[in-house]
Design a binder for these strands. Structure first.
Lengths: 220, 220
DNA sequence: AGTAGTGTGTGCCTTATATCACAATCGGGA
DNA sequence: TCCCGATTGTGATATAAGGCACACACTACT
């Protein structure tokens, strides 16, 4: 089916040695802690100190970092400012990214108004819906447009990320439309197991599912 | 441990402590798909069909289920209605659970108004904050109370789940208070790596971190 | 300049998770 | 009744992730 060559297409410049996804998913955690340390004036940190903060073993932190280079100094640890910059560059967080929201119902509007994205460099530059009564309205100065304009908007506004906040039944078709429009990553709030081609990353935000797995440990 | 020594851990539903967390986390996924299948009138399903829907291998589904019992019939597959009921019972979803929200700022109010929890049996029965200007107000008929009342409320209202929607700096102390009040599970929306004792489960909802790991794959 | 102390980077081993593959079982039809 | 196609449940195996432990590098102090 959609098998194609997946890994071979990455720019093999310097650090592309097939880094496990789990490792990539931990990097933002490191960025966050290091940023906090920097803000409190600390300029060197050891893997052991980081491990204490994050509740993981020092070895795991060192090994994770070693996928990308040698950032520490023996006997001293890591320079906080230098490491946070390196990690941000690795993650592509040394620039800003444009995103759009699809679905401007209650949830979509809450996401659009959420003040946590902008400070981290994620700018929501467009909003879409299929409901005629919403199209034309604005949320936080963001005009809601028809979903049919999405392809054009993605290209014109250089939108790399799509945020999906539509009902479950509509989610897969919206996701298909985003993929078709040339989006690179999707943050999906709809409670569905959505499918994307290999070149489009997708992550799900699903509080209900999180609750549903925790109750397993509650029944006693 | 040579021949067919029984060793079966199939005590059917009680606390088999040897079920991996990853397996438990997949169960709600199965519940969701099975529920949808039931709603569309399908009454038998094979692990292969489930695997197609969920994009995973049939073997994994069968093995996951085998941790909890033998629910299928050879040559036929699984009875959808029976399996969904079994899984719900295993997860503790055959009853409802009371939750409280701590932090009734913008995010907390959005969570309180989210209509997706109640249909799945999660009832938000209390809301707390430390901000005097919020205490006494109501959100969707839910009065906001002082955080100092939390211990009492947890016991009186049989609250098992705490939802944390406070700023990062306050999160750990709020979580400590919830643990101290006797809560069993925490859904944390604050962008921190929080710590709980082993008997209290915690799961984080962090859209920004999800975005930050996806950008790794976007940088071309 | 030598030495003691500290903490990295990484080869190797352990543990966890996923997949394979096949005997056992079921239901239906001849 | 017996056989056939289908599909489970699970031991065995493969793969992935995590952690240990130590040589090596760096700093500071004498």
């Amino acid at each position: 089916m959609a098998t194609g060559s997946i890994q071979t297409t990455h720019s093999n410049g310097s650090d592309d040695v097939d880094v496990p996804d789990v490792v990539v998913e931990r990097l933002p955690l490191y960025v966050r802690v290091l940023t906090a340390l920097a803000a409190s004036g600390i300029d060197m940190v050891s893997s052991e100190q980081l491990g204490d903060q994050l509740h993981m073993t020092p070895a795991q932190i060192r090994k994770d970092l070693s996928y990308f280079g040698r950032f520490g100094k023996q006997g001293r640890g890591y320079n906080v400012a230098a490491l946070v910059n390196k990690l941000k560059a690795i993650l592509g967080l040394d620039r800003s990214w444009n995103a759009c929201i699809v679905g401007m119902g209650r949830l979509g509007r809450a996401i659009a108004s959420y003040p946590g994205f902008a400070p981290e460099g994620f700018k929501i530059v467009a909003a879409f819906d299929t409901d005629q009564s919403l199209i034309g309205t604005s949320v936080d100065n963001l005009p809601v447009r028809s979903l049919s304009h999405i392809r054009q908007a993605v290209q014109e506004d250089d939108i790399a990320i799509g945020i999906v906040a539509v009902p479950a039944v509509a989610a897969q078709s919206v996701i298909d439309a985003l993929v078709d429009a040339g989006i690179g990553a999707i943050l999906n709030y709809a409670p569905v197991t959505a499918h994307t081609p290999d070149h489009v990353k997708i992550k799900n935000i699903d509080p209900v599912m999180s609750l549903q797995s925790m109750t397993y440990y509650l029944k006693s």
